[in-house]
Amino acid sequence: MLGRLVDWFSAPAQWSGPQAIPARVLEHLGYTLLAVVIAAVIALPLGALIGHTRRGELAVVGVANGLRALPELGVLVLFVLLLGLGLLPPTLALVLLAIPPMLAGAYSGVAGADPGAVDAARGMGMRESQILLQVEVPSAVPLVLGGVRFATLQVIATATIAAYVGLGGLGRYILDGFSVRDYPQVLGGALVVAVLSIVVELVLQGLGRLVTPGPDRARLRRAPHPVTTREVSP
């Protein structure tokens, strides 16, 4: 099997053309970026606002936890059956799945800002918008990035499944190979998407370290993994 896997990787068809590995990787990253950016535009401001005003906290916790139980495959299939084929329906499903972790990250980051610093800012006469943007948001960066990272990895995984509803990307190798019992292709695709996920995770981790101010770095390291902070404490 290993030999056939090497053969699959070394075949010229895997390295040029629209179904080659580089093209599929770019496709996969394209879907991921599109969904994560749309979800971030919705979830991050909303989460920050809720964290600042503390209005709708219960809703954010409920939505974040509730959406986690959604089976990705079912959501993808239902969106495609109801809205039709093409790029938009699966992308909307990916956006829906990317929102909860980012919403929770932005909310808990802003809500968890040092109350002393927030009070001091208010005492100095800062407006609420200034407090949010200059005090709370900077201190929320580590948790926001944790949420973005988790959402991105979830989208990469779900985009793989989305090959079932006609999307391109790396899931194509796995599902197409599976349907014709071409197992080297299945494994090759699985290997590429696994490596891609780990590389993206490492890049986002590195980015997180880069944009986190020095004293916060230890905090970032100690910060609970977004997966395990299921209940966002108010």
Binding site: A157, T160, G171, I174, F178, L187, G189, A194, I198, E201
Partner: peptide, 18 residues
């Protein structure tokens, strides 16, 4: 564990038989 958790489910499911 972080790296294992990162691997997409569909990929892991097809790795197991090998």
């Amino acid at each position: 564990s972080g790296a294992l958790y990162t691997i997409p489910s569909l990929a892991l499911i097809v790795f197991i038989p090998i």
